[in-house]
Computed example of a mutant assay.
Amino acid sequence: MDVVPVQLPLICARSKVRISIPADLRPLEGRQSILLAVQELGNRFPEGLPKLNPVKVDMKIEDPEIVEVVN
């Protein structure tokens, strides 16, 4: 498992599920712990991770500009 930078425009969705990430990802143990956490999420959510809905459910944002961007 490797750490790979990803440009922000390439992210098309976010999930409301969070995992804790070690402060240092250089040691193999830190990267392995993330791999195990992601695999466990795959087992818990076999149909895909629940999506974050910042407007209606999760954050209750009412700013019209953000509502328009989300829609």
Rank of each mutant, 00 (worst) to 15 (best):
L36I: 05
P50E: 09
I66G: 01
A37K: 15
P9C: 09
G48W: 07
K51I: 12
K56E: 15
D24M: 01
S15T: 12
I11R: 05
L10M: 12
P22C: 02
R44D: 00
D58R: 01
E29F: 02
L35G: 07
D58C: 02
D63F: 01
D63I: 03
P64K: 09
I21T: 13
R44P: 00
M59H: 11
D58I: 02
D2T: 14
Q32D: 05
M1I: 11
Q32F: 03
L41K: 10
P64F: 08
R26G: 03
A13Y: 10
I19L: 05
L41V: 04
Q32W: 03
A13D: 11
V67D: 04
S20Y: 09
P50D: 09
P22I: 05
R26T: 13
A37P: 02
D24I: 00
V6S: 10
N43V: 06
V3H: 08
R31H: 03
G30F: 03
E68D: 14
R18P: 00
V57H: 10
I34H: 02
A23E: 14
I66S: 04
R18E: 13
P5T: 11
D24E: 06
N53R: 12
Q32T: 10
E62V: 10
G42R: 15
V67L: 05
A37F: 00
E40W: 01
N53V: 04
P46C: 06
I21G: 01
G48S: 08
K60R: 15
P54S: 04
M1Y: 11
S20M: 09
R14H: 13
P50K: 09
I21Y: 02
L41D: 06
V57N: 09
K60C: 08
I66Q: 08
E29T: 13
M1P: 11
I11T: 06
P27T: 08
I19N: 01
C12L: 13
E62R: 14
Q39I: 01
K51S: 13
L25A: 07
S33H: 02
E65K: 13
V4W: 05
P9I: 07
P46V: 05
V4M: 12
L49D: 02
I34T: 02
I66C: 06
Q32I: 03
V67S: 08
L8M: 13
K16D: 12
E47P: 00
V6C: 13
S20C: 09
E65M: 07
P46M: 06
V6L: 15
I21P: 01
V69P: 00
I34D: 01
L28G: 03
M59F: 12
